[in-house]
Structure formats: C-alpha cells, structure tokens
Nucleic acid binder design. Structure first.
Length: 473
RNA sequence: GUCCCCAUCGUCUAGAGGCCUAGGACGCCAGCCUUUCACGUUGGUAACACGGGUUCGAAUCCCGUUGGGGACGCCA
C-alpha cells in the first residue's frame, strides 16, 4: 500500500525552519515510496489562528518547493466530525463527562508533583455516578484511558519506545464548549485522511502514546510513527519561534535560495554516505525516514551560506537577474532599465561567483546599476593617492585610443604600467587605483571585465569625475 | 518532580564488532593560482563524553555516571 503522509502545522505563527524540515521529510518520504503527501492546517484554536499565518505557511511551502497533493484540509471545518467521534466514545462507555474545575485541576497537579507521582488528572469523575453532576456546570468529555499495561510504539526513528499507561491521564477530547481538542482531532483527521505514516517533531513523541490509546479505542489501525529530532540553535538551546529570523520568509529575504535551504535541511539529521550536494531527484531516490538520526542537530549558518553560494553559482544568469529585480521592486523601487539588464547579464557570471547570498549579489551588482558620480568607499579613497591619480591621468590618455575588449584594456593598462610609466610599475599598482576610480570600491569583479561591460563612455566619465573633482588624500 | 529520548572533530555527518593509526563536508590556518575579492586547487588543525563490563577484538553490544534535549494545558 502506498504511504500517505501529512504536514500539519498550526497557524499560530509563521512557518519556521523546523516545520519546514518536517514538511520536507514528509514529502520526500511520500515521493520516495510513490505515496501521497497531504497538508492539513490545524486551526482549532480560534483565538490564536490567523488568516495571515495560514497564508504565510502556504506561501512558505510554495516558495520552498514543497508541493503537496490534494486539497488543503482545514481542521476547524471538521469539528462536527470530531464531536461525533467523541460522542461515539461516550456512548460506548470509553469516555465520560468530567466536571472538575480549573482550580481542582491545578491542585491535583501540584499535589501529584509534591508526592512524586506523574502529574495529571486523577480520574475523579471516571466512575462517578452521573447523577452527582453539579448544576449548571458544562462538562468536558474525557477519554477513559487504560490504567493497566503499557503503550509500545515502534517508532521509525526512535525505535521501540514504551510508556506505562499509569503515566498517562484521562485526556480531554471535547472541551466544555463542545469544541474538540487537538489530541482528539489529530487522531480523527489522520484516520479519516488515510494517513499511514505520521512524521513529525520529536516534541510529539509523548502525544503518540495517548493518540495510540484513542486509535485502539476506536478500533482503527494505528499509523506508523516517525518522530524526528528537533533543530537547535547555534548555541544548543532549542530553536523557538521567537528566536529571531527563523520564519521561512526571513531566509528568503536574506537571500537564500529554496534549493539551498532544502539541501541544507535534508542534511540535518540525515546523510547518505559522503554526499553533500544532493539534487531533489537524488533526495527522493535516497531518502528514507528510517535513516534519520536520533540526535538533535544545531543550525549552522556558515554551512547554509556555503550551500547557498554553490546553488547561486549553479543558477543561470537570467534567473539571478530576475531575482535581483524582484528584491528591488519588493522594496518599492523601480525595475531595471534595458541597459541595466544588459550589463547585469553580461557581468553575472563573475558576479555570482563572489556572492554567498542574494543580498551579497545585490550589493556587488551595484557597479552596473549606479550612475556617476559614484560614491567611493574609504578603502577606495586610500587607494587614490596623488601618485595613483597621476598614473590614472596618464592611463586615461592611452585608454582614449584603446580598444575596449577586456584583453585590449588589460594590454593597454599593462603597456602603460610597464613601458610608459617611469619608473615601470607592476600592473597592480595601476589596476587597483583604476578599480577604485571606476567602481568606487576596493573589490570588484575583474576590472577589465567591468570596464568592458560598462563601456568606454561610462568609464571615461567615471575616470574624469574621479580625476577632476576629487581630493582623496 | 514524573516519564521519554539523545551523546563521533567547533558544526553537520560516515561508521550497523575486526575494512578505523576513525572518512567526508562546513569553518579555521597555510601554500598555489591571481590586477582586488572570490572561485578553483594542495596541505594542515580538530572527535569516538566518562567509568565499568561482554568479547580474542568495541566508536560500534550491555550497565552506570555526567551532560544535553523533549513532554507533562478545556495550546497545538
């Protein structure tokens, strides 16, 4: 039977990096086994769920390239069905009404803790006569969990994990307002959606035991579980949603490519021999959830950057130019002119070799985007000593008559430095100030390439403005 | 407090009793390439948490210690 997996985020925050990895693994597992990957939005908490968050999650999934099958299931739309199952359990004597007040519950927990017992509900309404029900108190419905024995889960990642039933209390499946709780909805939905493999974060492991009890009470087949370890921050602390730039959109904004993030996330907790650069097709072919490690991984931006740089170099120049334009218009600035596009396309090959992220690429691309007079960095100014400026003045005269292919430009500059200049100079002595004058920066792509792309007119303009106006020393 | 899980270079990992004087990648350091920066390339640094077993032999199996993490809501 082909497996059916699902990613089931709750829209109380944005899609974060841990959720993205969970979704990735679910998708890869399904694709690998020729199964189905579904998406369910767990929006049963009406107070905290927002339409913005739902949209952000869907957008994050799409951006990351995590396409899902079938329609998105909204848990809130299924409340009636959840209630129906809860009532069925009540009818069958596998659940009961409980009238305990929040104060009583709190006290129970405190006492249990003080006495060294597992904290939780003590079952005081479990076998009580319904006639004892207090007037006017709406009850919750609790699941009558087995008290003896144990729950054994054969987790695909964690291995066999056992918990004694006495550790688990009678959980609420229907709130006093009649709405279903998460623990209950998940089981009903996973069953109804035909989920065969529940792949989710390690933080749900203990939930699995309770959920297993419910499956059994309903006589439903228990799905396979795979609880994958959580991602930790660089400091080893857990990566909470509050930890700053962790929403998936933040990675996009900082200039990470979805394929780089996918590759990075895949290698967190999973490996395939010595493979580091793994294409989507290879990922589908190689990935199996059983190979996921049990130890939590720390998030390392340096490695992500390295992967991102790799995929940046891999991208074609057109798509990179388009990406740059999108970033720009997203800030409310105008798109590129024809000339700018022409220059970017010509220069992209060496530009992308120098960038780790799109924002690096963007600032490196500035050379081709600004009009003179250009701004000079402090380091560029340092390069433009009186001596250097006089060299540039000499070079300018030769440039006037030089061919403008990069090789010709280099030959001209070399000729000036090594033959005309007295005493002779090393190429760098002239090329560096030239770079500063043309680009306003100490670093850039090969200067003769930049000059070729910029064209004669623009370069001489920049040179003149540097030579005339400026006093850099 | 109760229960559960984890433990190989700084980080991600390979390793399923001899192939391990522990491999790869990122980072870091150095060399080469070079008009800068990068790319590329060559080399280097660096780990089996600790203590007991089991075994002819343990990073790999068992137990304990320590250290990390997670779960214990009418949240999901």
């Amino acid at each position: 039977m082909a497996p059916v997996t699902r990613f089931a985020p709750s829209p109380t925050g944005f899609l974060h990096i841990g959720g993205a990895r969970t979704a990735l693994f679910n998708r890869l597992f399904a694709r690998h086994h020729g199964g189905v990957f579904r998406l369910r939005i767990e929006d049963t908490d009406k107070q905290r769920s927002t339409p913005e968050a739902i949209e952000a999650i869907l957008e994050g999934m799409r951006w990351l390239g995590l396409d899902w099958d079938d329609e998105v299931v909204f848990q809130s739309a299924r409340a009636e069905r959840h209630r129906e199952v809860a009532l069925e359990l009540l009818e069958a004597g596998k659940a009961y009404r409980c009238y305990a007040t929040p104060e009583e519950l709190k006290e129970m927990r405190e006492r249990a803790r003080a006495e060294g017992r597992p904290p939780g509900y003590d079952g005081r309404w479990r076998d009580r006569d319904p006639a004892d029900a207090p007037e006017g108190v709406p009850p919750v419905i609790r699941f009558k969990a087995p008290r003896e024995g144990e729950q054994v889960i054969e987790d695909l990642v964690q291995g066999q994990v056992t918990v004694a039933n006495r550790q688990l209390d009678d959980m609420i499946i229907l709130r006093s307002d009649g709405s279903p709780t998460y623990m209950h909805s998940v089981v009903v939905d996973d069953h109804d959606m035909g989920i065969t493999h529940v792949i989710r974060g390690d933080d749900h492991l203990t939930n699995a035991f309770r959920q297993r009890q419910l499956y059994e009470a309903m006589g439903w087949p228990v799905p396979a579980f795979a609880h994958i370890p959580l991602i930790h921050g660089a400091d080893g602390a857990k990566m909470s949603k509050r930890h700053g730039a962790l929403a998936i959109g933040a990675y996009r904004d900082e200039g990470y490519l979805p394929e780089a993030l996918r590759n990075y996330l895949l290698r967190l907790g999973w490996g395939h021999g010595d493979e580091e650069i793994i294409s989507d097709a290879q990922a589908v072919e190689w990935f199996d959830v059983g190979d996921v490690g049990k130890n939590p991984a720390r998030f390392d931006f340096a490695k992500l950057d390295n992967l991102n740089a790799h995929y940046l170099r891999q991208r074609d120049d057109e798509s990179l130019t388009a990406l740059l334009e999108v970033r720009r218009t997203a800030r409310g600035e105008s798109g590129f002119t024809e000339l700018q596009v022409e220059r970017l396309l010509a220069g992209m090959a060496s530009l992308k070799q120098r960038a780790k992220r799109l924002d690096d690429l963007e600032s490196a691309a500035e050379v081709y985007l600004v009009d003179p007079p250009i701004a000079y960095s402090d380091q560029a100014k340092k390069l433009l000593t009186p001596d250097a400026l006089s060299h540039l003045a000499g070079l300018r005269a030769l440039l006037e008559a030089s061919g403008w292919e990069r090789e010709e430009l280099e030959a001209t500059t070399r000729q000036f430095a090594e033959e005309i200049s007295d005493p002779p100079l090393k190429l760098g002595k002239v090329a560096q100030p030239l770079r500063a004058a043309i680009t306003g920066s100490k670093v850039s792509p090969p200067i003769f390439e930049v000059m070729e792309i910029l064209g004669r007119k623009s370069c001489l303009e920049r040179l003149d403005s540097c030579l005339n106006g400026a006093n850099f020393s």
